[in-house]
Design a protein around this nucleic acid. Sequence first.
DNA 1: GTAAGTGCAAAGTGTTTGCATGGAA
DNA 2: TTCCATGCAAACACTTTGCACTTAC
Lengths: 148, 148
Amino acid sequence: MQREKEQFVRFLRNRGQRVTAERLVLFDEIYAQHSHLDAEALLDAMKLKGRKISRATVYRNLDLLVECGLVRKQRLGRDRFVYEHVHPGQRHDHLVCRQCGRIVEFVSAGIAALQGEICRAHGFDSQHHTLQILGLCKDCSDSKGENG
Amino acid sequence: MQREKEQFVRFLRNRGQRVTAERLVLFDEIYAQHSHLDAEALLDAMKLKGRKISRATVYRNLDLLVECGLVRKQRLGRDRFVYEHVHPGQRHDHLVCRQCGRIVEFVSAGIAALQGEICRAHGFDSQHHTLQILGLCKDCSDSKGENG
DNA sequence: GTAAGTGCAAAGTGTTTGCATGGAA
DNA sequence: TTCCATGCAAACACTTTGCACTTAC
């Protein structure tokens, strides 16, 4: 995380952008949490810490982190964008529970191979992929079985 | 398509819902086009045919077709939902060009296997998946090479 | 000191909803 | 005749933007 923070600061300096307290605090929060955050959750987390940051600043800086390559922005089932810090090397995808919204990460070597193969076949120059598997997590499908 | 239309009509009757001119026209349009439509495109297509249908009706009936299982609703790269009629049997995924927005379908047997495997490993009861590969299509990456 | 960042509120975008009117069964 | 469907406009949820004030450099 220290390495990533330095990367972020370097990125800002290179572009003549400023290293503000808000940016650092947001960075810390995103890296402190392992989970998948949306703007609202981030806003709440900031408020809890007594560090109120405006919604606009949250959105603006999330985009900045995405540009920097440190954060990934995706829609996972919901209407909102979900942000997660990029794990070095470890490319993962998501299982999303339609009932409770739980998001589980998984890593599968097979997908990278598949992606390459498909792109070759269609003359695509692929940058990345998004794979979501939607369904019911264990807890939800168990409790569904009990009621039904 | 005739078979699907009958399925739709049966679906409506079973639920005590009505077979309206708007519903049939929308159905026809979605099945006439092979492409991936958003609500706006559908609205425009209707207008072009001199058959004006309100935005609300378009959205309401797209949802109905999704419930009926004849239409798939997804976000593909863009902010809008994209709708496509379901091809019988042929499960496919999408390549999305980030430059021009072109959407190319592909079928890969490997993904279904992967999906099953991953769900088993995580105790998930999977309903379906969405795989998007984002990148540059051949035309866009060629013209990029020329300019750069 | 100067340009970039922030907060606020207003504007955008895409989608959904409430309600009066119209139309299928 | 009865309700469901439609159209319209207003409401919605999330995100972006304009502008005056603040602050990093």
